[in-house]
Amino acid sequence: MKTASRKIVFALAAALLCAGAAPGSGPATGQPAPRFALPVAGSTKTVSLGNELAGHRLTVVIFIATRCPYSNAYNARMEAIANDYAPRGVGVLGVNSNVTESPAEVVAHAKTHGLTFPILKDENSAVANLYGAAKTPEAYVIDASGALRYHGRIDENFEDASAVASPDLKNALDALLAGKPVARAETKAFGCTIKRP
């Protein structure tokens, strides 16, 4: 049964991945977030978005990198969000879509920087294509129905976490958890281009 359901998940992922999109052409907020299943970096375990949605009020998918200083500036902030919001039913998934960064490197990076949320390896950047993700870090918030509710940055100040004026990802999570609309559902910041094959 396990093998059969795994085959279905992979088949679903493959079908969805074949319908990949170019950077910047992912779903708009309010639209269904593309489903995917990816291996946890350095592991035989697979995580499917569908299962994550079923187990959480909100799921945050963040495209991250090991070598991007802009993404690395957010390591502690991402970990804090994962820990702070877990008791409120929010799951965080990291996705590494850089073809230049191996699963072993992703595992070592997570260990070095204390990232405890699952980091999935998107070997062919196929999930980045599905979401139209262009850079790292780039965050997506998906509600339990599978609809995309927020897309953009973690906040506006990568240099100084203590001087953040616009914690956009947290604001989106707080609003959604309170049953309110997200005031700024699309935001931008600089970041490192995802290295696709």
């Binding site: 950077p23 910047g24 850079k135 600089f190 970041g191 490192c192 281009t193």
Partner: peptide
């Protein structure tokens, strides 16, 4: 406006 902020650009 169509630029997402990714670098290099």
């Amino acid at each position: 406006p169509a630029w997402g902020g990714e670098l290099p650009h």
